[in-house]
């Protein structure tokens, strides 16, 4: 049975209030075409989760789609800050839940294991435990008595991950850094992969350092050549530096951003 859908059908899976998790990291392998499809739609008030957020959440924030953002980082790696994330936060217009990398991994892992929480040491002694939206609670280990942090499960309604190739059944390969995309996929209630290409069958022969995603986790696949937009998708294409610099310069201009979202 083919799991192939198009971007309109993908957008149809999202409802207001849903939590949508995005894969990739910074300006690497971001599901830009998928984010742009959501940004173009009439959807509003969605919640977003991005381990290492980049232009995908930035453009959704700029298009006023995001009510609440769960993240450990949002930025453009060596190119600096994310313009709309920054502007929205400084205007007091974006609600956030701030994690560290390790805390977000535990939140996804708890959801993947269908546990209410997992314990961690990360966050102890830091202000992440005292933000107004903090989901974390200090706890005493019932076995050793030591102080730990309870990290509640974070289960997105939909995960969207960009991959190098997928087959119609949903098996897929990521050739670059897979970040925490497997945890995100396993934590989420529904999973859509956008793929540079859809192949007849993911072959048994693959790059030794690639990450394999099983069809058992995947609900839908969208064929999306260049679906990473101006982010880097190894080994297909490097990031597009002039597009990144142009985005950073202009993206807080709503007319410019709307036109950009139309192109992506």
């Amino acid at each position: 049975m083919s799991k192939r859908i198009d971007f309109d059908e993908m957008v149809g899976l999202v409802e207001p209030g849903h939590l949508v998790g995005f894969g990739g990291g910074g300006i690497q392998r971001k599901p830009m075409a998928a984010a742009a499809a959501i940004a173009r739609s009439n959807l509003q008030h969605i919640d977003a989760a991005s381990f290492l957020g980049g232009p995908e959440v930035d453009l959704l924030i700029g298009m006023k789609k995001v009510r609440r953002l769960h993240f450990a980082f949002v930025g453009f790696d060596m190119f600096g800050l994310a313009p709309n994330f920054r502007a929205a936060r400084q205007a007091g217009e974006l609600e956030i839940v701030e994690y560290s990398e390790g805390l977000m991994m535990s939140a996804f892992e708890a959801a993947a294991k269908r546990l209410p929480f997992l314990p961690s040491r990360f966050g102890l002694g830091t202000d992440l435990l005292s933000t107004p939206t903090t989901p974390f609670r200090e706890m005493k280990c019932p076995l050793s008595g030591e102080k730990l942090v309870a990290v509640p499960a974070l289960a997105p309604d939909l995960a969207i991950v960009h991959v190098n190739e997928a087959d119609e059944q949903g098996n897929a390969l990521i050739h670059s850094d897979s970040y925490v995309d497997l945890l995100l996929i396993q934590a989420s209630k529904k999973v859509v992969l956008t793929a540079e290409k859809i192949v007849e069958r993911i072959s048994g022969e693959r790059r030794a350092r690639s990450t394999f995603i099983s069809r058992l986790w995947v609900d839908h696949v969208v064929e999306a050549p260049s679906g990473g937009g101006f982010s880097a998708v190894f080994p297909q294409h490097r990031f597009n530096m002039s597009a990144i610099l142009e985005y950073q310069k202009n993206a807080t201009d709503p007319a410019w951003l709307a036109a950009k979202v139309g192109e992506l």
Binding site: A72, G75, R86, L128
Partner: peptide, 16 residues
Amino acid sequence: WERPRAQLIGARGIPD
């Protein structure tokens, strides 16, 4: 934190 003068990148891996 609730309405920062400058929003930077987030705590990232430092707490870890």
